[in-house]
Amino acid sequence: MRKPFFLSVIGLILLTLSGFVTPPQGYQVGDKAMLFKLKNVDGKMVALGDASATKGYIVVFTCNTCPVAQAYENRMMALNHQYAAKGYPVIAINANDGTLSPGDSFDEMKKRSASKGYAFPYLLDETQEVAKTYGARSTPTVYVVKRTGSDFIVSYIGAIDNNRDNPSEAGEKYVQKAVDALLAGKPVETPTVKAIGCGIRWKQA
């Protein structure tokens, strides 16, 4: 009875070490979001839940260098402009490894935030643990989290809208619809939307 269990444990360890186990999926809608604490471009630490007046957050895994993230940058800023006052500010997180992607280094993040005038935190996920825990695999990816008691519940995961190149032609503004629904106390109709983006630049072992 013990031997099969022991062998399965060894097997699982070997599989994990060999990298054949598929990576964890990260959050699904309904999960409690990790209360991360990361360094902002102004050098100060920012935590989810710091701003006590918020109803939730629009967490955006983004970066400087990905052309898709760049295409959505103005829209990300517009989301903050539209929803921060309503209780859903944006928090942007860069998880790209700065060595593999020098354009996404902390210094470059500071420059980008300053030159574009980000009115929201732009945090560095140095160890990439936040991105892995959330399950973010590419940029840009949005997680809308809703404050529920002392928790933040993941309520939307995915793309900002359905037209990367032509914002005015985007018939489906997924994040806006999700946040509007949450503000109105209604269910989010389209809670997850996959999109093509740049894979996050994971640190090499």
Partner: peptide
């Protein structure tokens, strides 16, 4: 196929849409 969400999952349930794949 610009409506990415409609087909990414059909190519593979393991795929988030990140490139390269």
């Amino acid at each position: 196929e610009p409506d990415y969400n409609s087909w990414i999952g059909k190519v593979s349930p393991d795929w988030s849409g990140a490139l390269p794949f």
